[in-house]
């Protein structure tokens, strides 16, 4: 069971990182979107390894089945052919990339210094049957106010999107 988990982790991790790299480097946006979907699905697999089954479902339904469909929809509405022939990276790409790597180096250093200090507790033999209930309990009792704020955020975003679309029509 341990080796199976290990193998699954390596599989999902490699898949996620490889498709993330491909996503950032592809010229064709649709291919990029497909690679991002692959990354998101492998992340969902990692959530499952971490016994967060409800989040696995949220990731698949909301992220992959909702948000990414929106992305693909918009990609198909805008004209691909022109932007595919243009230069893909901006002029400051060298500076920007170097800065990103420096940032990554800092994080890497922090994790490296503290490595081995944090360990996952012994895994239960199977996924806890109460995960969905536990998340719902926390969401609707302790995190009630943030939950309501999040719903207002969604409402505002919805109105914003509608306003944006209206202006285009008028």
């Amino acid at each position: 069971m341990q080796t199976l988990n290990q193998a699954l982790f390596i599989f999902f991790a490699v898949l996620a990182v490889a498709s993330a790299i491909l996503m950032v480097t592809r010229r064709n946006i649709v291919h990029g979107a497909v690679f991002l979907i692959t990354t998101l699905l492998s992340t969902a697999g990692i959530f499952l390894l971490l016994q967060a089954e409800f989040l696995f479902i949220v990731q698949v339904i909301l992220y992959v089945g909702g948000i990414m469909v929106l992305f693909v929809f918009v990609i198909m509405l805008v004209n691909l052919d022109v932007s595919m022939r243009q230069v893909q990276f901006n002029r400051q790409w060298f500076v920007a990339g170097a800065l990103a790597l420096v940032l990554a180096g800092q994080f890497l250093f922090a994790i490296w210094v503290g490595r081995g200090a944090l360990r996952l507790p012994a895994m239960a033999s199977e996924i806890s049957p109460k995960n969905t209930e536990a998340v719902a309990d926390a969401l609707f009792s302790h995190y009630m106010l943030p939950f309501e704020i999040a719903s207002i955020l969604l409402l505002v975003a919805m109105i914003g999107a509608v306003v944006m679309a209206k202006r285009r029509a008028g």
Partner: peptide, 23 residues
């Protein structure tokens, strides 16, 4: 435990077959 949600999630991914095929 999440049987129904699993079916919904997986079948909602079928849309990519249609969208990508059309594109």
């Amino acid at each position: 435990n999440i049987g129904l949600l699993f079916i919904l999630a997986i079948s909602s991914l079928g849309i990519y077959g249609i969208v990508l095929g059309g594109w």
